[in-house]
Amino acid sequence: MKKRLISSYDEENDIFVGKVDGENGYVADYGIDDGIFLKINKSNLPTSVLISNASKVLNTSKSILESADVRIGIDCDEFCVKFSMCIEDLKIFSTKCKNSFGISNICYEMDSNI
């Protein structure tokens, strides 16, 4: 499933936010890695991602995080959640955690270039 991503980066506070276009609100907010939070709607689908201390967490420069060309992939099964982030077609981060949140089996992509 592919959705249009609207992303923003606050350099002063070092916070990255990626939101699915047209989605409002969420019913759950899960910390899937240190500083990475995934918000889920009532259909159990991702609506947004917030990354605090983004340049440190993603181990990249603040200038790269200001790019508008962002793609976030979220793959879930009953065992794990896989999160990846690409900026300007370069993978800058990926992580995997246990799916103790009950997120549905999905292959989900949020892309700023749709």
Rank of each mutant, 00 (worst) to 15 (best):
L38H: 09
C86E: 07
D14K: 06
D21E: 12
C80V: 11
N53T: 12
T47Y: 04
S8D: 13
S100R: 05
L58H: 09
I92Y: 02
K82R: 13
D33Y: 08
I32L: 13
L58K: 04
I64R: 14
C97Q: 02
V57T: 14
V57P: 09
V17W: 00
P46T: 08
D89P: 00
K39S: 12
V27L: 10
G31Q: 14
L65R: 04
I32R: 12
R71A: 06
K42R: 07
F83L: 05
M110I: 00
D29A: 07
S84V: 04
G73S: 11
V27K: 05
N41C: 02
V27R: 06
Y9W: 03
F79L: 09
S67L: 11
S8G: 13
I32E: 08
L58Y: 08
V20D: 00
I51Y: 06
S43N: 14
D21L: 11
K82G: 06
L65I: 04
G35R: 07
D29C: 08
F101W: 07
E78F: 00
Y9P: 08
E66V: 03
S94H: 11
Y26A: 10
S84K: 14
K91I: 09
S52Y: 01
E109C: 09
K56F: 13
I64W: 00
K19P: 00
G31V: 14
S43G: 01
S52M: 10
G22I: 04
L38T: 06
G73V: 09
D14M: 10
L38A: 07
D75C: 09
Y9R: 03
N99S: 02
K91W: 02
D77Q: 02
E12Y: 08
S100E: 05
K39C: 08
N24D: 15
